[in-house]
């Protein structure tokens, strides 16, 4: 990403959340973005994931400037190329665990049966094979995050974006979740970009980007 700016404007305020951020992540990397609260980490991830648009600058993923994609192309890009993992899990409470995981595949147009098969195998991989028909709202935090990891991976995205995936979990569960992500990263050669406060999470990183006040202050490979 190159010289990316994001300015939030509103009535009587103007926040420069990102001020010319540039860095690079190679394919298959496990990149950890760190920085204090309010430094612009979530904003950064949202821009990469095309759920928000930068005020200035370019974001090139796989040779394509995603900031220039049309609305429909962005929908498609998010669905097929990106997997999101959120701090608050963001599962659809009305759906079952299985249906939540199937969702991105169904959006993509995969048949019900195939989506179900794929979702079941992912749920088995994250250790939730016995809870597939539970309501998503009734799981524990760790279980929810594992469901959302499975959901993020079902369309085999090239890029997985995780915003404080362990921010709402206890330390033991956090370790398990990070190990799970690291494993998947190594097995499938998918690129992970992960935002965190937690220094122990950084231990899994192959690259660390530190930001402060909307600027990159450090970028190092581990």
């Amino acid at each position: 990403m190159e010289k990316v700016w994001k300015v939030y404007r509103g009535e009587g305020f103007r926040v420069e959340a990102l001020r010319g951020v540039s860095f690079q992540v190679s394919e298959g990397e496990f990149c950890v973005v760190m920085g204090p609260s309010g430094s612009g980490k979530s904003t950064l991830l949202n821009l990469i994931g095309t759920i928000d648009t930068p005020t200035r600058g370019r974001i090139i993923i796989d040779g394509v400037d995603v900031t220039r994609l049309s609305e429909a192309e962005k929908d498609r890009f998010r669905n097929r190329r990106v997997g999101f993992i959120f701090q608050f899990f963001n599962l659809i409470n009305e759906l079952t665990v299985l249906e939540n995981v199937m969702l991105p595949a169904l959006i993509c147009g995969v048949s019900f049966e195939e989506a179900e098969r794929e979702a079941l195998s992912l749920l088995r991989a994250v250790g939730l094979a016995d809870k597939t028909s539970h309501s998503a709202a009734k799981l524990s935090g760790g279980e929810m995050q594992r469901v959302s990891i499975a959901r993020a991976l079902i369309n085999k995205p090239a890029l997985v974006l995780a915003d404080e995936p362990t921010g709402n979990l206890d330390s033991q569960t956090s370790t398990e979740i990070i190990r799970l992500m690291k494993e998947l990263n190594q097995r499938n050669r998918q690129t992970f970009i992960l935002v965190t406060h937690d220094p122990t999470v950084a231990e899994a990183a192959t690259k660390i980007v530190k930001i402060l006040d909307g600027r990159v202050v450090e970028e190092k490979a581990v």
């Binding site: 994931g49 759920i51 929908d75 998010r78 999101f84 959120f86 963001n90 991105p104 959006i107 959901r151």
Partner: peptide, 12 residues
């Protein structure tokens, strides 16, 4: 919130 999530997952 769910509408936001669906949009993030690629629903047009």
């Amino acid at each position: 919130r769910d509408i936001g999530v669906l949009r993030a997952l690629g629903v047009s």
